[in-house]
Each structure stands twice: as C-alpha cells, then as structure tokens.
C-alpha cells in the first residue's frame, strides 16, 4: 500500500491550494473513507469464522479462560479428530451428501424441462401461468408443512430421505425463473435452424440449449447444494431417526443432548463449513454469476 505517499501527495496539493486538483482530492478522501469502512466491516465479518477456528483449537480449560485468548496457547489439532468421533460426523456428512446429490439431480432435470417449456415454446396462456407459478415462491412453507407431513406420514416416508428429495423432481420456481431468464437470451434463430434440420423440441433442448445452458445449470446445482446443506427445518421435521440426521440437524441436536463441549462443537462446525468454503473458492465465478442472474433481472 502506498497510502502514506498518496496522503502526503494529497496534503501537498491541498496546502498548495491547487484548486484544479480539488476534485481529485475529494475523490481520494471519499475513496479513503470507503476503504476504512469496508476494511473495518471485513474484519467484523471475518472475526466469527476466526473465533470458530481458534476456539476449536483450544483446550477445554482455555475455552473458559478469562480474559479470552485471541490465539490458542497450544493449538489442539487433535480436536478435529476427536470431533468426528464426538458426533457421528462422517455419517451425517454422508447423509447430507446423499440428499444433496439426489436433490440436485431432481432439480436440474425438472427445472430444465420446465424452463424450456416457459421460455422456448410459444403457447397461449404461457405468461399468465408463469406468473402464477412464480407467485408460489411467496407462499410461506408453514401453510403446506402440516398437510405434507401428514401425507408423508401416511405414505410411511417419515424417517426417510424421501420428503426432502422427492419434491425437487417437480421443479423449483426460483431456479426455473433463473434458467428461463437465461434461455430467453438465446437467439430464436438457433432453434429455428435446428427445427429446419428436423430436430424435435427434446432434440433442440439436448443438443442446442443444454451446452449453452451449462453455466446456468452449474449455478442451480451449486445453490441447490448450499440450500440442502443449510436446511434445518426440513430435516428437523422429517428425520426422526438419529442415523439419518444431516450435518446441520446433527450439530444442533448433539449440542442439546450432550451439553457443551465447546471446543469439540466448534471443531465439528469448522469441519462442516469446509466443504462449502472449498466449493466456493473453486466455483466463485459461478456463484457471482448466479447472484447477478437472480438479482438483476428480477
């Protein structure tokens, strides 16, 4: 950072009363303030994650030490190993992954088909139905939660992954919206050309649209993964059997059952965050594009 140099530069310009540079100075002051606030906020945003990691590395005694230590005196790396035994960590991770993979498959297949029907085929009533479909986003889950629980119970699905997975095969309005926005930008000439070559709608979808749609599908897959991974209410209602808990549910209920072994809970939570954070760093571009797609075009 050459900030001191910039500062003395600004000061020189200011003292010299060089009014031609007045605007420049103002800009620099504004930018400086932006830097200070953003950096301060960034520190505040990072701190909980830092605190999570450092608490995970403390001994039981150091966790309760006053005043708290900002760096573990003797980092207990074996806490991570202990955490995976303290709670059935790998079992919960495995359950979460099974649900996530199946939900992603269901979401990708159903949302692609639905979005294609809403974006690339012109039929009467299309726009009205699309708005009706979109408006289902606004329905609070609480309204359908109880009857769905009762239906799943009658089908013997409580205590299985089915209630968490099956609905994904019937589309998700927000992701359909995202994919539709994307499909609308593809020129009509492309489909027309394929049609003249004798391709069916399914053929167009598979051979023309799918390759173009890949980045948007990656976004949907990622967001679905994050949603499943973070979901708490769904597993809380439907997964009655301890062996089927997801990582989110398991972390909470374990904390309740066995009291607070804080450093081990922190270690388990840190481990639970690793997949998401690693995934983010490898797919940053896809995430950011997804945010623009959902946000801007709204």
């Amino acid at each position: 950072m050459a900030s001191t140099q910039t500062f003395s530069n600004n000061l020189r310009l200011f003292v010299a009363g060089d009014w031609q540079h007045n605007r420049l100075i103002q800009e620099r002051i504004k930018k400086g303030i932006a830097y200070i606030i953003c950096t301060l906020m960034a520190v505040i945003y990072v701190f909980p994650l830092y605190w999570l990691l450092t608490t995970a590395l403390k001994t039981d005694a150091e966790v309760f030490q006053l005043p708290p230590t900002f760096l573990p005196v003797d980092p207990q790396w074996q806490n991570f190993q202990a955490a995976t035994e303290y709670i059935p960590f790998w079992l919960y991770m495995g359950n979460t992954l099974i649900i996530a993979v199946l939900t992603i498959i269901g979401t990708l297949v159903s949302c692609t088909l639905i979005a294609y029907g809403f974006a690339r085929i012109k039929w009467p009533g299309r726009n009205v139905l699309f708005i009706v479909y979109l408006s289902t986003i606004m329905l609070p889950t609480q309204v359908t939660m109880i009857p769905l629980y009762i239906i799943y119970r009658q089908m013997g699905w409580i205590g299985t992954f089915m209630p968490l997975i099956v609905p994904s095969f019937f589309g998700n309005a927000l992701f359909v919206f995202l994919l539709r926005q994307f499909l609308m930008t593809i020129p009509a000439e492309l489909s027309e050309a394929a049609k003249i070559d004798g391709a069916s709608e399914v053929g167009i979808l598979r051979h023309v649209m799918l390759p173009l749609l890949r980045p948007a599908l990656a976004t949907v897959a990622l967001f679905t993964f994050v949603n499943v991974y973070r979901d708490f209410l769904g597993p809380l209602i439907y997964l009655s059997d301890q062996n089927q808990w997801t990582i989110s549910l398991g972390l909470k209920l374990f904390q309740n059952m066995y009291g607070a072994q804080w450093q081990l809970m922190m270690a388990a939570s840190t481990l639970a965050m690793v997949p998401i954070i690693v995934l983010f760093f490898f797919t940053q571009k896809t995430f950011v594009e997804g945010i623009s797609l959902t946000g801007i075009k709204g």
């Binding site: 605190w51 973070r230 708490f232 989110s248 809970m265 922190m266 939570s269 639970a272 965050m273």
Partner: peptide, 8 residues
Amino acid sequence: PVVASAIV
C-alpha cells in the same frame, strides 16, 4: 450452515 455458525 446456519447451525454451524450459530454455535460460534
């Protein structure tokens, strides 16, 4: 995950 962060 909300649960993991809420613990800290």
